[in-house]
Design a protein around this nucleic acid. Structure first.
Lengths: 195, 195
DNA sequence: ACGATAAGGAACCGCTGGGTCCTTATATGT
DNA sequence: ACATATAAGGACCCAGCGGTTCCTTATCGT
């Protein structure tokens, strides 16, 4: 009854973002509503809309908060580095509700600024940097040709993995990561390799 | 006033599907509502729901009706065949509202049967057959190694093009198709080509 | 000519994202 | 210590959504 404790500011904000994330994980993107999030956070929609302009904006905040910081693998071999990186991203994707990515794409389409923000988290812009480091190291080792490959090839691993999540229904096939790396990415990294 | 003409059966059904398609093109996936489609078709939601269980189901019917039949290009060269095929698919994609694909993915997720049907149209299952013919011909010509590449490589062109539509905002970059073919697909088709 | 079928149309349901308004608890400046 | 600005809580409202129900009436097969 006497709920005399009233949270404010960043304390409240963090509680809301956490509630949004939990609701997202438990109910999925489609069913995580502003009402359900407010209820879970023990507050009201009013407070939510004071901080975020719209539903997808709140979800982006929740996603940003839990976006994994991917460290750079360093096994000594390009292929193994890439497999490790992709395996890590796979873990992150496995924590996301299956309709999160497509839902965010749909709901941020009409706001270019929001769409860009979405891309930064969902399209793995941070991951590109990691990939670059891996490839530079490989070039230093002489495993691949010196110089970075095209932007498209850099994006390729994560693009293909995300594609897998968007277009498949159940959990990811076991060999998906190694298939993508071994059958597609690796052959492109040694364009006319002498061996 | 005297709307004494009352359509029935397939006549009405085709009118509805066409209205759904028009509404989809003009308003986009998110804003094409059952109400607006019924209104445009000059009928009521009642009639829509008698034929299709849900909104995405109606959209799939509309998409099926207008799914382009892709003929097999035959230029005499693998690369040109693939560029022609992809260019054609690009044209089809350009006719679709930008949020159609992601919207359908989101809304069919919880019904595996529907999700599969969606994949057949959206993921270009018919296109895989065309790609297979192109590659078989190329093998016969000796342009690529005999035998079909892995399923993943077969899917690769259309997967990458669709990915482009899902993850970009404005119209597609001019060189997207040729980049995908020349930088990624083609190098994979001549695994250790003797030249 | 008639009876089954189904179209038209309206009302209804629970819910959504989004917004308003008022009361009351809290943090802060003095 | 107290006054005041700020913002949380919460109730309520809104138009519109997907989906459903019900009733009237036009059409088709026989």
């Amino acid at each position: 009854m006497e709920q005399t404790k009233r949270r404010r500011g960043s304390t409240l904000e963090e509680a809301i973002v956490e509630a949004a994330w939990d609701e997202l994980r438990e109910a999925g993107y489609a069913k995580a509503t502003m009402n359900s999030i407010a209820r879970r956070a023990g507050t009201s929609k009013h407070v939510l809309y004071r901080r975020w302009k719209s539903r997808p904006e709140l979800f982006l905040a929740a996603l940003r908060r839990f976006a994994a910081t991917v460290e750079v693998p360093d096994t000594g071999d390009v292929r193994d580095d890439l497999v490790a990186l992709m395996g890590r991203i796979r873990q992150v994707f496995d924590l996301l509700p299956r309709d999160l990515i497509s839902g965010l794409i749909t709901d941020t389409r009409d706001d270019p600024a929001l769409f860009d923000e979405m891309r930064a988290y969902v399209m793995g812009e941070g991951v590109h940097d990691v990939t670059r480091v891996i490839l530079r190291r490989a070039a230093d080792r002489g495993q691949v040709e010196p110089g970075l490959p095209t932007a498209r090839i850099l994006r390729l691993p994560i693009d293909l993995l995300r594609n897998e999540y968007l277009t498949s229904c159940g959990p990811l096939a076991a060999g998906a990561v190694t298939e993508i790396i071994d059958d597609i990415v690796m052959p492109l990294l040694r364009p006319a390799a002498r061996r």
